[in-house]
Design a protein around this nucleic acid. Structure first.
Lengths: 214, 214
DNA sequence: TGTTTAGATGAAACAAGCTTCAGTTTAGGA
DNA sequence: TCCTAAACTGAAGCTTGTTTCATCTAAACA
């Protein structure tokens, strides 16, 4: 989204295109803040607009309805996590399985913890709207990345990479969710991550040894 | 809730207490059915009452509000799963770790799959109401059961059982959720369960070998 | 058979937030 | 400087579903 070119002697900022882009951004940001401060129940469109410094009408200029706005918020958050996964999966190509496991778990938990509060709040939002669909889409994206990575491992797996990747993701999300919704996420983070890596390494190694059958 | 004692020659059934108990049950049952048929969004109190064959007023005689009713539904479901876990954990005391892992995973996935549809629908409901609290409570209950079981294993763990139990639960719930929300749960059930058991066995065995340190 | 009270009824009051839209402001170009 | 289109405004309409309550029914008991 490049800024519109400015007339000869007009140093004025943020013209047409950019103005609205900024507004959309402000709204999305405000939505998360409102969510964190007053919770899903009291998150109203009027509320979000006010926090964003605009009027409700403006909000409805960019989103057809409340649900669409929340979807955008969720998508934004999921993209961050997905990108984090894709990044490490790219970096880890050709490495050993333990390397991969460690990097993947660290990246995932890290991304989730980065703004743990928002993550938890969004779990709730995801239930309204068809959040499951969004989550699933991103899930498939990261799945592909994980599978691709696994196929380049030094020691080849003797198990269907698709299945292995699915398990890894189930494990990651399950443990991270448990962690995030626990009473003291920060405190348990370190040991949980360690253990998660241990578990993943153990599993992956076992998958190189195991007979091919089934 | 014992039935009210009946007068000498009055074989008449379902007196005062029981009549209402039946009503409550009908309402709870209706709630799930409505949930499955029209989804969370269109689940209204009037709706549920009609399906239960009573009037809204009656519903409000047993539940202070909609949220309380939904909580009761969720609690009921969670109790089933928790009981399934406690049962196997009791049965498996003193057995080998692989035995335990296998039984636990089978019981959990089985309980969730028994009415998979309801499970998924309740994920959504749980987000409204303070479902997290309910889920967490039951989670702690099963946690205790798992820990107690692990402590009786033939081969002793060299890792904190609390941590191990937490991981197992994270793994179970993560994978099962992934499975339930996938497009074809029944189809993937068998291989997923197999793999889940394999993963759990691998992990638990590793936990008996691993040096005690941290 | 009459009385009492648990249980049931459902129309309507009420609440609350989403969404609209007619009108105003601002930026960029001529 | 004026004009046009893009942005923005916010009071009020509208929809929808929750909850209440005055009233009715029927079981238990004497």
């Amino acid at each position: 989204m490049p800024l519109r070119s400015q007339a000869v002697l007009e140093p004025r900022k943020s013209p047409v295109q950019a103005r609205s882009a900024a507004t959309v951004d402000a709204i999305l940001e405000a939505a998360i803040q409102v969510l964190l401060q007053v919770g899903k129940e009291r998150l109203t469109t009027t509320n979000v607009a006010r926090r964003a410094g605009v009027s409700v009408g403006t909000l409805y200029q960019y989103f057809p309805n409340k649900s669409a706005m929340l979807k955008a918020v969720l998508e934004r958050h999921m993209d961050e996590v997905t990108e984090a996964i894709e990044r490490v999966c790219g970096e880890q190509r050709g490495n050993g399985l333990e390397q991969m496991a460690s990097a993947l778990m660290t990246a995932f938990l890290g991304a989730k913890m980065r703004d743990a509060k928002a993550s938890v709040a969004l779990y709730a939002v995801s239930a309204d709207i068809d959040g499951a669909k969004i989550v699933q889409e991103r899930g498939m994206k990261s799945n592909r990345a994980v599978v691709a990575m696994l196929k380049t491992a030094e020691a080849p797996l003797t198990t269907d990479p698709q299945l292995v990747a699915a398990m890894l993701q189930g494990v990651m999300t399950g443990v991270s969710r448990r962690l995030l919704e626990s009473t003291a996420p920060e405190k348990e983070f370190e040991p949980m991550l360690r253990e998660l890596i241990f578990l993943a390494c153990t599993y992956l190694n076992a998958c190189t040894v195991r007979p091919v059958a089934v």
